[in-house]
Design a protein around this nucleic acid. Sequence first.
DNA 1: ACTGGCCTATTGGCTAGGCCACTGATCCAT
DNA 2: ATGGATCAGTGGCCTAGCCAATAGGCCAGT
Lengths: 238, 238
Amino acid sequence: MVTPQASADLPTPLARTRLYEQVAEQITAWIRQNGLQAGDRLPPERELAARLGVSRATLSQALVALEVVGVVVVRHGDGTVLTGRHSESRIVEAIRAHADRIPEIIDIRDALETKIAALAAQRRTEEDLAAIDASLDAMAAAIEHGERGVDADEQFHAAVTAAAHSDLLAQTMREISSLIRETRIESLSQPGRPRNSLSGHRAIAAAIRDGDAAAAAAAMHAHVEMVSDVALLRGDER
Amino acid sequence: MVTPQASADLPTPLARTRLYEQVAEQITAWIRQNGLQAGDRLPPERELAARLGVSRATLSQALVALEVVGVVVVRHGDGTVLTGRHSESRIVEAIRAHADRIPEIIDIRDALETKIAALAAQRRTEEDLAAIDASLDAMAAAIEHGERGVDADEQFHAAVTAAAHSDLLAQTMREISSLIRETRIESLSQPGRPRNSLSGHRAIAAAIRDGDAAAAAAAMHAHVEMVSDVALLRGDER
DNA sequence: ACTGGCCTATTGGCTAGGCCACTGATCCAT
DNA sequence: ATGGATCAGTGGCCTAGCCAATAGGCCAGT
């Protein structure tokens, strides 16, 4: 045979990287480090190229790559400015145009997170439970301080997603996370909502801890529905 | 006021395009026209640049863009070769590496399609029902002819997805459709499976027609589970 | 025969330097 | 105020060239 040996572990494919790739990564790293926001400007190409020790042509390639990915937009005669959202997925692009997109977001949240909760109940490890508990504590503390607990809320859902141990579901959640975030902020700014949300989280967490998939799914479903009430009916009765 | 006029229809933002963008499009058009396949080679940069009437630097930018998007891979010293699938979504990329990815695909199918079935039961129009029926007929006909009915199977799920009237869910299904297709082909090649699949479809369709969301969800869930049995337990008992 | 080393043509990677075009701010004339 | 000219700064693109990797052929050794 031509290659009788196991090809899986042999040499090393030897990752060849192009210079422009390294440059692009350095730039994004620099953006992160300096906490640059949308609208901020990168240094001029000539200066940036000199500072990175590459030619302007190479830097230009890196900028093309970043532009294609959606990190920056290069404006002739003006400069290179950061775009807000780093390259949204096609899913998000497709939906963002709609003004009345919130119902759809809730639909897909319900679909994914209910399943995620059920899987989490079956597959969660001790580490997963610890992470979930930590997010509950964080949210409780945030509420004590009169905050809305947006971060802790996200933390909880991320922990549950991780506990489901499905890369595909997790990746899909990530894809729509920016959409979810918008509804979440809206929801948690309703008075009394953070506290209700926390008790919903506690119910979900308890079901996951018990390994009760059906209960976890039901609790998550109820939770998502509660959020949807708020998002849809602005001035609700309570 | 500064701009009292409606800004929506005024002049034209005047689409400025970079040269590399035009070049990239010309290249992809050329690929399409000549029906090039994965593995085929583009002409050498020097020649291609000359033929397109641009500098090598600009052509190089275009190739970077095409490389980032995933259309080609540029190999130092060798040439520029076409990649197979044009830029899969990140979701698909994330999962494709796994050999044991089928369970995850089933998880997310279950999550999405169950919800889709429930929504379809609530929102379906007469046109939606007609499309669903058409797919059922197509599958029945295919089975009569001894075929597996892969296309009709996809047609059915597409029709149900459309009936749910959620762009976001539909788009997400599209994203993972290539993954689902793989499991579907595997499933339908089991003897007797197409017929079972068809009766599952009929049950789903009936529930959707009745407007019974819970029944539709349950039927879809059962259907997805049946498929998963086949995919996971190769030589199953039946 | 088969292997391994070597050479070489071909091809992409990257740089340097330069000119042109666009943008925005400023200043001036109307 | 308005409109036009000017100018500095910035990206767009090009030419010319050398460097580096690859593939394929040739050849000696086994």
